[in-house]
Design a protein around this nucleic acid. Structure first.
Length: 192
DNA sequence: CGGCAGATACGCT
DNA sequence: GCGTATCTGCCGT
């Protein structure tokens, strides 16, 4: 399995990223996590940073698929997207939550000692746990120190589509996807 | 538990 | 100036 599907539209890529693996190399340690919640954005979406054409902040979203778009919001939080779609078309999939597979100790340390599911069950939290900041903006996810690997769902797992969270525009769009019953899905996401 | 406000800096009007 | 693809702590029940 390859990452070729990243060139498809965001709403296709969103569900397909569920179950994929992110590997972060940092300070001689390896952190591995599995993506359990995503959300699709593209330039026709009023709520997307790519809406209204290419801007300085969102330029990466218009670049080649498979790169990382990192942005800063609320004065204190980073969030990260996987750029997707054809080059020149602004689209990306926000990674909203991940499930730790390896390096939990390192992640807890990055999060100031927080352990358990609170370590990565939200967009800002997972960026802090993986030490992702603006210096990673535009990073190619096929290269160290942060690599995206194709993955799949376990046989018993199911994908749920839901309305979006935390935004005021186009919030009724069904562009959020998560793995049903996974404990690391952001806790606001429980209802169907 | 659930709800609410505060933190805090950046991009856009 | 204002709103923001959020998180945390503090409050009351």
């Amino acid at each position: 399995m390859t990452l070729d599907f990243l060139t498809q539209p965001a709403e296709e890529v969103g569900p397909k990223l569920l179950g994929c693996i992110l590997e972060r190399q940092i300070g001689g340690h390896t952190i591995a996590v599995r993506i359990v919640e995503t959300e699709a954005y593209d330039q026709e979406d009023e709520a997307s940073h790519a809406h209204g054409g290419k801007k300085n902040r969102s330029a990466v979203m218009f670049g080649p698929a498979g790169h990382l778009y990192v942005y800063f919001t609320y004065g204190m939080h980073y969030c990260c997207n996987v750029v997707c779609g054809p080059e020149g078309y602004g689209a990306g999939v926000l990674i909203r939550a991940v499930e730790p597979l390896a390096g939990e100790r390192q992640m807890a340390e990055n999060r100031g000692g927080i352990t358990g599911k609170n370590v990565s069950n939200g967009p800002g939290k997972l960026c802090q746990a993986l030490a992702i900041d603006l210096s990673m903006n535009g990073h190619n996810l096929r290269m160290q120190p942060l690599v995206l690997k194709a993955g799949s769902l376990a046989p018993h797992e199911a994908i749920v589509s839901a309305k979006r969270i935390g935004i005021s525009k186009a919030k009724n769009e069904l562009r959020r996807f998560y793995i049903k019953d996974n404990p690391y899905v952001s806790y606001v996401s429980r209802p169907e």
